[in-house]
């Protein structure tokens, strides 16, 4: 069975796009969360190998959710996704322990290479 990936993004279209790339490349999507709070809950329930996390989301944003998840498990590999490449956000993400940061738009190569880079 492939490595398990949790998707956290408020856009259903992004979920479909990511799922398509991941499943085509042998990864298993173990959960779909539409905000950071759901992401934290699904992380506890599914214990994924990787998490793709959007930044701007309702209820709880991606940085806050990533911080909470890293507090629960410091080894989990989180890949942040954002349409903005703000240096301040990237700095905060690095401080939390985010290994990879993907700027949208993404293609298959960006997604898969980020997974192999963090594996």
């Amino acid at each position: 069975m492939g490595k398990r990936v949790l998707l956290v993004d408020d856009s259903p279209v992004i979920h479909i796009m990511l799922r398509k790339v991941l499943e085509k490349n042998g990864f298993e999507v173990c959960g779909d969360a539409k905000n950071g709070k759901e992401g934290v809950e699904l992380f506890k329930a599914t214990a994924p190998d990787f998490i793709f996390m959007d930044i701007t989301m309702p209820v709880m944003d991606g940085l806050e959710a990533a911080k909470e998840i890293k507090r629960l498990d410091g080894n989990v590999r989180i890949i942040m996704l954002s349409a903005m490449g703000d240096e301040e956000i990237m700095k905060q993400a690095k401080e939390i322990g985010i290994f990879a940061f993907i700027k949208k738009p993404f293609d298959d190569y960006k997604i898969i290479s980020a997974l192999y880079m963090t594996d």
């Binding site: 856009s11 259903p12 992004i14 949208k104 738009p105």
Partner: peptide, 21 residues
């Protein structure tokens, strides 16, 4: 319909991100 709106919102957000960069 909701996917169309979501898709267009994502596209314009990415375009804005590129312009910002």
């Amino acid at each position: 319909d909701e996917d169309m709106c979501d898709g267009i919102a994502e596209i314009i957000n990415m375009v804005a991100g590129q312009i910002k960069t």
